[in-house]
Computed example of a mutant assay.
Amino acid sequence: MPPRRPAGRRWRHRLTVLSFMAPALAGIAVFLLYPLGAAVYFSFTRFDLLTAPQWVGLRNYAYLFEHDRTAVTAAANTLWLVVVLVPARMLAALATALLLTSLRRTAGFFRTVFYLPALAPPVAATIAFVFLFNPATGPVNLVLGKLGFDGPLWFDSPDWAKPSLVLLGTWAVGDLMVIFLAGLLDVPRVHYEAAELDGANAWQRFRHVTLPAIAPVLLFAAVTGIIQTLQYFTQAAVAASVASGQAMTGSGISSTFGYPEQSTLTYPLHLYVSGFRYYDMGYANALAVVLFLAAFAVTLVLLLRARAFFGGADR
């Protein structure tokens, strides 16, 4: 056994470690723990930013779960985006990364080309997409018309508004593509060579070699994608405002949230309108706490399932 340190040296060592951790701990306390605690407290109050908070107990949560039909619509739209947008982005990014791994001389050029859309600001990209998919004058419907197809109304249709947002999300997958590309390039070539010697075809190599090797990367992409989509705000807000023809300033943008027919109203948009249009900060904080708990629960379930899967794989 190694000799035990004297008590004084152990305390000095701990103080040294804490001194190095102090900036990070202070940042976590100030920018995470305090805002989270404040949000929980205000969720039990009636608060409009102008007067002192009044304690109302569980009244905000009771209204949320029993009476707020708009919250149900917003939650359903957000769940739809989680179920459709997250897998769509992952599949598009993985397919692009697989394509790039097969290139040789032009790989660097195409990596840059596919990554560039991820650098576009979300507001500018959304405005450009609404213009491109304009049902009357947009280039997309004009091309479809020349091919003999009647283009849909896209962002002006309750049935096509969310799929249009999915198209926007799958266009800018460069950030996720880079992560998948790093994971694919890290798979040892000897595994593919051994599979080829055993007679495995391309699909079998992908199924039994590539997917297990990049499973942690897929888990990371799924967790971060779900958390980001649960907070989906900018693209839905801008698309609704531009498609409805309203100015993206002040109450103009908030009055068009959900256009058309609340089909693009996401949970964070409803939270924003409750807090910053109706100044019901207590209720907005209750919405935020529920959103945090939902994201935490989904993340915890995914991590536990992944832990069981990887543990079983190791055995």
Score class of each variant (00 low, 15 high):
Ala124Tyr: 03
Ala124Ser: 13
Ala125Gln: 04
Ala125Arg: 02
Thr126Tyr: 02
Ala128Phe: 08
Phe131Asp: 11
Leu132Trp: 15
Leu132Met: 15
Phe133His: 10
Phe133Ala: 09
Asn134Arg: 03
Thr137Ala: 14
Gly138Ser: 07
Asn141Val: 14
Asn141Ile: 13
Asn141His: 11
Leu144Gln: 07
Gly145Asn: 13
Gly145His: 14
Leu147Asn: 06
Gly148Cys: 07
Asp150Cys: 12
Gly151Cys: 11
Pro152Arg: 06
Leu153Val: 08
Leu153Asp: 13
Phe155Ala: 03
Asp156Gln: 14
Ser157Trp: 00
Asp159Tyr: 10
Trp160Gln: 08
Trp160Asn: 09
Ala161Lys: 01
Ala161Ile: 07
Ala161Trp: 01
Lys162Tyr: 10
Val166Trp: 06
Thr170Trp: 02
Thr170Met: 13
Thr170Gln: 06
Thr170Lys: 04
Trp171Thr: 10
Gly174Phe: 06
Gly174Asn: 04
Gly174Lys: 02
Asp175Ile: 14
Asp175Lys: 13
Phe180Ile: 12
Leu181Met: 08
Ala182Lys: 04
Gly183Arg: 08
Leu185Val: 14
Pro188Thr: 06
Val190Tyr: 00
Ala194Trp: 00
Leu197Val: 12
Asp198Cys: 03
Gly199Trp: 00
Ala200Tyr: 00
Ala200Val: 01
Asn201Gly: 13
Ala202His: 12
Gln204Cys: 00
His208Thr: 11
Pro212Val: 07
Pro212Thr: 09
Ala213Leu: 05
Ala213Ile: 02
Ala213Met: 04
Ile214Met: 10
Val217Leu: 05
Leu218Glu: 08
Phe220Asp: 11
Thr224Asp: 08
Ile226Phe: 09
Ile226Trp: 07
Ile227Thr: 15
Gln228Ala: 15
Leu230Phe: 15
Leu230His: 07
Gln231Asn: 14
Gln231Pro: 06
Tyr232Pro: 00
Tyr232Arg: 04
Phe233Gln: 04
Phe233Ala: 01
Thr234His: 01
Thr234Asp: 11
Gln235Asp: 12
Gln235Arg: 00
Gln235Tyr: 07
Ala236Trp: 05
Val238Lys: 00
Val238Phe: 05
Val238Glu: 06
Ala239Pro: 02
Ala239Arg: 03
Ala239Thr: 05
Ala239Trp: 01
